[in-house]
């Protein structure tokens, strides 16, 4: 069983849950940016949690099925077509050999997920099938897919067509995004007024927004004047090079904040002022260039609460899918 990439879309990569080891050597986790949509896609086709899927950014691919199978599309809101006929997203469908999956233009969100029964069966690297394109590691030949690629799919899995996620549980990606942030790290480098203003600003996602990180525009940040410590460099935005958590927000030059995401650079010399909580990384990953984003400060306890809520929401989705199959 294979998927033939007829058109690759803009940026389509193989992703799973990502790596848990390697950060200490500079290797980011990668993995699906929108965990909820990723897990639901696998649940819909009856894959075990952790199977690899395709993540399609902004522009959907065109894919031919070499054999009959079951597939589902979740994530960003864009029309899904099977042989040119519109079909329901957030639902599992049967494809026959020779069928072609295609997409219309993006309406909201940024990333769609395509799960196929059996999962995308590329060789795992460091315990994951996720693609890390910056260094050409993992996934399918370490890169985004191209026309003509033949993607292996796990054998002897027929899947379960006819499953769907109730509409009430489908996330809405339209409208401004709110990303909860645990303030900290070197936030003391920013003046209190400026830090407060940061959280009141409506930031806009720039075109410079990918799996490594998102750059935003819309405000200014003022640094507390100081004599720079030894080894920190002369710019007030600089610190002695330090590790960057996934989700951390840095502000090079004080003008355009960058939030690091799944393919983050693991460390560097910019002051970071806080970190997007783990359950909101997926919210950031569904914003697209031009979208409005607000950052909202929360306590560590609130972050842990949000983590439980995200887990409960996924569990509820899985139960609903099982109940409707």
């Amino acid at each position: 069983m294979a998927l033939e990439i007829l058109r690759p879309g803009l940026m389509t990569t193989v992703q799973d849950e990502g790596r848990t080891q390697g950060y200490a050597l500079g290797m980011p986790p990668s993995g699906a940016m929108d965990r909820f949509s990723y897990h639901v896609a696998n649940a819909l086709v009856g894959n075990p949690s952790g199977a690899a899927v395709l993540e399609c950014t902004y522009l959907g691919p065109e894919i031919g099925f070499s054999q009959a199978t079951t597939f589902a599309v979740t994530g960003a809101d864009l029309p899904v077509h099977l042989n040119g006929k519109e079909i329901q997203p957030w639902a599992s469908h049967r494809a026959e050999a020779g069928d072609v999956l295609g997409f219309g233009f993006l309406r909201s969100g940024a990333r769609a997920y395509i799960a196929v029964a059996g999962g995308i069966d590329v060789e795992p690297v460091m315990g994951s099938r996720s693609t890390y394109t910056l260094c050409g590691m993992g996934g399918f030949q370490g890169r985004a897919l191209r026309a003509g690629d033949l993607l292996p799919v796990g054998a002897d899995a027929t899947g379960t067509p006819g499953r769907s996620l109730p509409a009430a549980l489908v996330p809405d990606f339209a409208g401004p995004a709110e990303l909860r942030v645990v303030v900290g790290l070197a936030s003391y480098r920013v003046t209190p007024d400026s830090l407060a203003a940061f959280f009141e600003t409506e930031w806009q996602v720039t075109p410079d927004a990918n799996r490594v990180g998102y750059r935003y525009r819309g405000g200014l940040v003022e640094w507390v004047p100081r004599t720079q410590p030894r080894g920190a460099g002369s710019d007030p935005a600089n610190v002695v090079d330090i590790g960057y958590p996934i989700g951390s927000i840095q502000i090079p030059g004080g003008t355009e904040p960058i939030a690091l995401l799944n393919d983050a650079v693991t460390g560097g010399g910019y002051a970071t002022i806080g970190t997007i909580i783990s359950s909101d990384i997926q919210v950031a990953g569904q914003t697209k260039t031009g979208d409005v984003t607000r950052f909202c400060p929360v306590s560590i306890d609130a972050a842990l609460g949000a983590r439980q809520e995200a887990r409960a929401r996924l569990a509820k989705a899985r139960e609903a899918i099982e109940a409707r199959s």
Binding site: Y58, F105, L106, K288, T289, G290
Partner: peptide, 9 residues
Amino acid sequence: VAAPFPGVF
């Protein structure tokens, strides 16, 4: 002719 995705034209 519409923009298939957001960006700079």
